[in-house]
Design a binder for these strands. Structure first.
Lengths: 180, 180
DNA sequence: TATTGTTATACTCTATAACTATA
DNA sequence: TATAGTTATAGAGTATAACAATA
């Protein structure tokens, strides 16, 4: 279900929100020691849910990713595609779709775009004439290398509230959740 | 950036994919002990990234959530809205937007829909005549209670690969990432 | 008969501008 | 002048059906 791309955030000068005094809960039972959920509301229950927490964390990290990748003009899904091609030269579109859970029709435009930018090249598949092997151009390799460095550096910043051990634990536990 | 809703998955009888023999990497350096990324590809690097792992895990959990919530006809964002209203009766739309990171124009339709279903009712705000307090109807309370039970049960299933302690750790670390 | 890559297209999600009523 | 709620709409993301070429 769904691919690994992400919404077009990163361009909204939205109206400022109340930072401190978020209008007291105007009704009954404001929850004893109400944990702040960003608006003074009781979000305690939602914060017990793995899906809720994983999505909030993902959006938070991806927001930083979007900013840092702007110089490369790469969305998360573009970076994933380039990176998989870099590490798996000759990979087919179909394999990328399976690995990233992208539907084939939705990958076509991305590959076409990356190709138009001169980052990837398609070569005939050695054994299957239906398929095409995807490879990085020299420029594609350079860009992917720089983007990967940026992504790796990013890792430290987005996890500044965590120790290195905690980050390693977090990643390991997340993989356990989706790898089945 | 972005709200907590989710794509319209849960209705795709997609074509079956190669389960075991996913066509060997047709080119150089297939990575020594290549960890399977779902298609026999080397996805090792992507799996070191918090954003990648968090998003994959979130999508995995949400896919289960979508199935289990079908009887209630509730998307994740609908469940979040109902739950916040349940725990914060009289909450305003604006507060929901801030807590869930939803843009006001995008909440309007959801609230309207939940109201049309007779799940929530709007009452005049006690002190601000611009605003409206949101409350659950009797039916809304019943549905939210059942849905919350379902969500809590779901928690065990989606984390079947984790011990209870690991799940608690995972949730705590995720909150640390996005709460800042 | 099944799969790869593709086009066309519908539908959902996310974002911006702008308006009104009230503060 | 600023905020709550709203409308309209643009743009990005996700999904399905169907086709030609090849296996």
């Amino acid at each position: 279900m769904s691919d690994l791309s992400v919404a077009n955030s990163m361009r909204r000068p939205r109206a400022p929100r109340k930072p401190a005094s978020p209008a007291p809960a105007p009704d009954a039972t404001p929850s004893p020691a109400a944990p702040s959920g960003g608006a003074g509301l009781d979000t305690a229950y939602l914060e017990t849910l793995l899906g809720y927490n994983a999505r909030r964390a993902a959006l938070s990290v991806i927001a930083v990713f979007l900013r840092r990748m702007e110089p490369f003009d790469l969305r998360p899904v573009d970076f994933s595609v380039l990176t998989l091609i870099a590490h798996n030269p000759g990979v087919t579109s179909r394999q990328l779709c399976a690995a990233l859970d992208i539907l084939p029709p939705n990958l076509v435009g991305m590959v076409k775009n990356l190709q138009k930018r001169g980052l990837i090249v398609r070569k005939p598949h050695p054994t299957d004439r239906r398929a095409q092997g995807l490879h990085l151009s020299a420029g594609g390799k350079r860009l992917q290398r720089e983007a990967q460095s940026t992504a790796t550096e990013l890792e430290h910043d987005v996890s500044s509230a965590l120790t290195p051990n905690e980050l390693a634990t977090l990643n390991a536990l997340l993989r356990k959740v989706y790898q089945r």
